[in-house]
Write a protein that binds this DNA or RNA. Structure first.
Lengths: 139, 139
DNA sequence: TGCTTATATGTGTAATATACACCTATGTGA
DNA sequence: TCACATAGGTGTATATTACACATATAAGCA
């Protein structure tokens, strides 16, 4: 227990509550409704509420989704500027999205349970911040 | 593009929608309400709805939480069987839990948004599965 | 006694996923 | 010609998780 110079153990503050692979279902959902290129899609995702979408990982993921036949793309050189890959979702992709939706639904239930236990006054769509009074019974 | 023998690229089915570090807030929440040992806590987490809680990672995480002063523990040798570490949350831990709660709240909003877009008939607490009819307009 | 099972707490390490830094290229406008 | 927005990436270190395995105590039972 001496000379501790740990690797600053951090369950990264910035990364709090970022679910694994969460970009995937949102990408698929957006591509189900819009046929767009990556750069545009990425903007949509940020609008969606994901504040940080790493550009590198984003494109890498898109290519992987294509490799796995979840989406297809074709080059668009008609417009000015750099060539774009226009993406669209496939049947497989839609099925995969449905799988994700089930999974996210499960997770949503757990979140509701979490908040019910965290703050008994909680109910979705009317979040009441926890008061000091509500944590008196201390075991 | 020849001789593809990829590493079977899989956004793991089993791991779908497993949020990063999700064990942490649930551990803290449960420890806020109960002073228990790891083995017991793990059972509670499974009851909570987390189907797979890897034992190894679980204990490792507990020790890390203690190392970071989120929880404290003391050995209990009064009961029969192997000695147990009884855990309880600290002030720091409670504050960290609050941080997590905010973060999870944000995420919950995104989930609601996801489902609103995924299935327009969706509303929380009355989930209506997507019908075939609802996906006719195909761009 | 020896064997099995449940309880209880861990370690080692490979596979995955993500963050962060960096690269290439086209077109617009100052 | 230089900066900047658009567009699409690669390399790699770090973080997180999965999976296999290790240790120890006690109870049941043949």
């Amino acid at each position: 227990m001496s000379s501790k110079q740990k690797k600053s153990t951090k369950y990264n503050q910035a990364t709090l509550a970022t679910p694994k692979n969460f970009l995937v279902p949102i990408m698929l959902l957006l591509l189900r409704d819009f046929n767009v290129h990556g750069y545009e899609l990425r903007k949509k995702m940020i609008q969606f509420g994901i504040e940080t979408v790493d550009q590198g990982n984003f494109y890498r993921l898109l290519r992987k989704l294509e490799e796995d036949a979840m989406v297809t793309s074709e080059w668009d050189t008609t417009a000015g500027g750099p060539a774009k890959r226009i993406y669209s979702i496939t049947e497989t992709g839609e099925q995969y999205l449905d799988l994700w939706a089930n999974s996210l639904g499960e997770y949503q239930k757990m979140l509701n349970q979490f908040f019910t236990m965290y703050n008994p006054f909680f109910s979705p769509f009317s979040f009441v911040p926890k008061t000091e009074d509500s944590k008196e019974e201390q075991e």
